[in-house]
């Protein structure tokens, strides 16, 4: 039995499925692929499968990973192609490797956001830039207090590690790095929703592009 980390992208309409749905989808895909998955012992055996860091509903990603356990020493390349052929549209397996880091070391995530259908892109660019350069931007965020869900204030800009805003014709592109992982997590949609208020009729698409440790080392 050995543990492998399966790297995949999640793009297109499948971005609208939740983390729970993704787990179910992956379980079925792995069953279809016929790879020799290792099952837990006991009354209700289930496959071992853990995801590095859940992705919010609605986001695309280039850097998702899940760890699975397989029973024998089938090669990584063979597993990759078996998995790929069983995946639904929108899931692309990019690599199958031996894990290097424990997911608990994930501390930051990088995102790429594209704004489309912006009415006046120059105006939006200026306003967005100004907003991102403010000292603080406090919004309400659903958080937990013990077991209860409560609204909490967060200062998004305080958490923003770095960003770059560029304009390419009518498209506006925002790249940013925010805390992610088990200690602090800031959803980039909170910031994008604020930016969206500066224009109307527009939409944004968020892609998670990379995960990092606290020393900005790439999660692998």
């Amino acid at each position: 039995m050995r543990t492998l980390r399966v790297w995949f992208q999640k793009r297109g309409p499948i971005r609208y499925i939740s983390h729970l749905d993704l787990m179910r989808t992956m379980t079925r895909a792995i069953r279809r692929s016929g790879i020799p998955l290792w099952y837990t012992e006991g009354f209700n055996p289930h496959p071992y499968m853990t995801f590095a860091l859940p992705l919010s509903l609605g986001m695309e990603s280039l850097c998702e990973s899940m760890d699975i356990r397989i029973e024998d020493d089938t090669g990584e390349a063979q597993i990759l192609s078996a998995l790929q052929s069983a995946m639904p549209a929108g899931i692309e397996i990019t690599a199958v490797k031996v894990p290097v880091l424990d997911p608990k070391f994930i501390a930051f995530a990088a995102f790429d956001v594209v704004f489309e259908d912006v009415r006046d892109s120059d105006d939006f660019y200026d306003k967005a830039n100004a907003l991102l350069h403010r000292d603080s931007l406090v919004v309400q965020k659903l958080g937990k207090k013990g077991h209860k869900k409560v609204m909490k204030d967060v200062d998004l800009l305080e958490h923003l590690q770095s960003f770059s805003l560029t304009k390419d014709g009518e498209l506006l592109r925002l790249q940013l790095v925010l805390p992610a992982g088990s200690t602090t997590n800031v959803n980039p949609a909170l910031l994008c929703d604020e930016l969206l208020k500066l224009t109307d009729g527009a939409l944004y698409r968020i892609t998670r592009t990379a995960l990092y440790t606290k020393d900005m080392e790439l999660f692998a």
Binding site: P13, Y16, I17, G58, P88, A89, D117, A189, G201
Partner: peptide, 20 residues
């Protein structure tokens, strides 16, 4: 794209996307 704009505003958007 017009549907894409409202998907973030509804519950269980995957009901409306197809692609299964």
């Amino acid at each position: 794209k017009e549907i894409e704009k409202i998907l973030p505003l509804v519950q269980k958007p995957a009901r409306y996307t197809g692609g299964e």
